[in-house]
Amino acid sequence: MIRTSSLTKRYGRITAVDDLDLDVREGDVYGFLGANGSGKTTTVRMLLGLVLATSGSIEVMGRAMPSGARQVLPEVGALVEGPAAYAHLSGRANLALFDAMGQGARRATRAGRVDDALARVGLGGVDSRPVHAYSLGMRQRLGLANALLRRPRLLVLDEPTNGLDPQGIREIRGLLLELNAAGTTVFLSSHLLAEIEQMCTRVGVLDRGRLVVQEQLDVLQQPTGRVVVHTPDADRARALLDGQVEHQEGERLLVRVPDAAALNALLVGGGVRVASLSAERRTLEDVVLAATSSGSDTFSAPAVGR
């Protein structure tokens, strides 16, 4: 769906995006994770043909960008660095205007498309007040509606839940998963680990313009071969397990065993009371912290890493 090779963008002497090889497959919910200033937005803009790459190539839906923009972009919906609209017009009028731009949108079905998009993002009952009277959350929803207008095959969303309350975030998450289930590929750029972890099937991590991780989320989160055990009888458990405990922290034990069920049977059989027991998995946070240097908006001297 999206494939870049050696994608690089320099602004003068600053390299914003460095030798990026993205690979987003059809049907993915791809989480594009990175700290502020790591080059996420620049990458998104390059994918959409807004910013021209210094070198490297981009392919979206099998066509080169930006030369194939006329064929590609009608099938892409996007939200780039916050929503934007003509403040003196109503949301509905805004969508009608944006729908009339470019080619291939039939006029007869315009009102239907606009209503549909507004309904999807929960603005179906909005009145005709101008956009400058909208709340931040409403503007964000309107931006999403604009992205959804043409029923895109690919959604490129930059921080889509900005400004939404928890209820709104959940609604949008549900909407995106629903769209994905219906066949839409979603490219989600965010600096929020939790958001990515909850929605995405595949993750790319950007650090200072370089792609440091790109993998299926479930591969990243595979079991570590250790089991976490919470027990009030920690000392008895330690004795019973004899050297298999790698780490103890109060009532929490980390045990290296291949089979959690067998461990449970062993402990219970040994008279140890088990409060909880589960196989340990790596969190996305661990992966990201391991792969990245300190946040790129800190400027500590001497510089860490590169």
């Binding site: 803009r45 959409l48 043909g49 807004l50 923009a69 006329r70 972009l73 009608p74 892409v76 996007a78 780039v80 660095e81 916050g82 929503p83 934007a84 609209a85 003509y86 403040a87 944006f98 731009m101 470019g102 604009n146």
Partner: peptide
């Protein structure tokens, strides 16, 4: 300045 330019261009409008 209004931010609408990028949304026009990705509609796409040449």
């Amino acid at each position: 300045q209004a931010g609408t330019l990028r949304y026009m261009l990705i509609r796409p409008v040449g």
